[in-house]
Design a protein around this nucleic acid. Sequence first.
DNA 1: TGATTTTACGAAAACGTTTTCTTTTATTTT
DNA 2: AAAATAAAAGAAAACGTTTTCGTAAAATCA
Lengths: 336, 336
Amino acid sequence: MSTNLKLLAKELGLSISSVSKALRDSYEISAETKKRVREMADKLNYQPNPFASSLRRKKSITIAVVIPEIANNFFALAIDGIQMVAQQKGYHVLTYLTHEDHKNEESTIQHLQGGRVDGVLLSLCRDTADIKHLTSLHETGIPLVFFDRVPETMECPTVTTDDYESGYKATEHLIKAGCKKIACLSLSNYLSITHKRMKGYEDALQHHNIKLDPKWVLQCSNDNATNLAMITKMLNKKDRPDGIFATVEKLAISTYYVCQDIKLKIPQQLKVISFSNLRTASLLNPSLSTITQPAFEIGKESASLLFRMIEKKTFGNRIDKIVLKSSLIERESSKK
Amino acid sequence: MSTNLKLLAKELGLSISSVSKALRDSYEISAETKKRVREMADKLNYQPNPFASSLRRKKSITIAVVIPEIANNFFALAIDGIQMVAQQKGYHVLTYLTHEDHKNEESTIQHLQGGRVDGVLLSLCRDTADIKHLTSLHETGIPLVFFDRVPETMECPTVTTDDYESGYKATEHLIKAGCKKIACLSLSNYLSITHKRMKGYEDALQHHNIKLDPKWVLQCSNDNATNLAMITKMLNKKDRPDGIFATVEKLAISTYYVCQDIKLKIPQQLKVISFSNLRTASLLNPSLSTITQPAFEIGKESASLLFRMIEKKTFGNRIDKIVLKSSLIERESSKK
DNA sequence: TGATTTTACGAAAACGTTTTCTTTTATTTT
DNA sequence: AAAATAAAAGAAAACGTTTTCGTAAAATCA
């Protein structure tokens, strides 16, 4: 079939082992033999069989990225950063989408126990409450780094952003813009990012002597139609909020759609700020004030950390917790 | 280390081959032995070594997706569709980004000759003129499907959209909105999609007796700053176009930024229509008229076709050319 | 009962590498 | 010139599966 070491050896009148060593530039092989071998390998377009190699060396030169979704600016940018580092290291990248479904996350993790990859980058899905599949994976000893959506009750390396501070600042920004009744759109009951962003929201309110009203904390679902209905219901009431803090991009987009629909003026009647990596944030009508996470950097840092672990360059059993900063960008949607 | 067939066999007092057969549900193994084996496999959390398996069976259960970029709504959605089909088939997905660089495309393809994957899904990068790396890959006999950006001079299965018709319709739409001087923003000299979309543009102009002025066909680069400069220059002239047809999303976004910058009113002074998969198209200021490709469907169809080829379900040496339809969605940016 | 088939399992080769250990040949040392 | 060493290459085992083939024992048949 395709050319392998055996064929190459026959063609060159050498043994398989010598050819292998020549290609790996071993000191045991003379310079001229190496040259001959390399030339023949080029001529016959030899490509080593990756499975034979991986089987023998117990290295896959591959990492896995497990994320909730890909049609999402944050994750697309993060993957971009991950790919950049991986490509630089000569590694392959397997991507798995959980579609925010715990079952998918579990079965994916289960598959990855088989040694298919040398390391795993993971961002939890919104309904992951039980993490025993994660501890199980962790216990196999495979390098594992969580990014952005990380488990709260597990000792593991993570790359996140300053979610609490960002939630605080976003809320404070709305308060300073004159909002008194600030709603918070939350993605999940389980995610650390949601918890922290909401804690920032709560603390900012308290610090400014605004009482938190639980009816303005919306636990959104994974279904867009449901979210639209919930937001519409809230905004259609007489007693409606005058500010919205969306903890994730898509909830801000839903809010915009609702406001367009029910003709609520942003920012005159409702001010909005949201976590978002939209490239079109400043082109929206009105332009959207955002907390923007350094998504590409997060991917880059996560991958770099993972490779440090794979290459055992991380000292002892120290556990890295990298925290990057998000930036608040004021635009029209939250203007006073 | 991790539990393998050998350990399982020892634990069960069986031979390795029997255990293997039991797990693969062979008729040669009795029902009760199968049960015993499965229970022990579960108990010891046995996961077959994928490399040993792939080596032996000459199957990787993996496909490769090679695309120009991921932080791009079209490709993100396409990947989503691909992943859905792959997951359903129990296949793994390796993703490679070329970043619109021919060199990367070449080296990625080179790597894929080694048998790492059972099939390849590919969308060309903008500067791919020479396609001998592609014919070379094709000649290895590995199933290969191109989507959206396909080579024009190669006999191969493709999944595309009705680019010519869409280009024609988009241009005609601008003409009907009253435009006389319509510019076309092109991505590349080499891509089939650009050729076809531009041919539609040219034919629509001709059909409506508008003479094509070459100064209004802009060959954009891969550098955003350069594009902004080119577009600004064109729109700042006294003799500027009154309509713009952007062949790709990011050029429309650049156009919006330029108009915001130089205070040109869309659609009063300049009407805009663009190929785009922006979820926020209707939230932009003004909302953007788009030709929207069924990106998710394209991914789905491409993957399905690829799997038909992998499973040899495609008849003889027929070459599938699947063409899906894009839809023109009129919004404010091209209002009369 | 003896011959034949069926059932259930085991032995061993194969996939294509990598790597350890040997062996051969050439070179240097005494 | 004989012995020791160095250089270059080969033999073979190993990685963990899958699969072909062989072979007991049990079941069926004549």
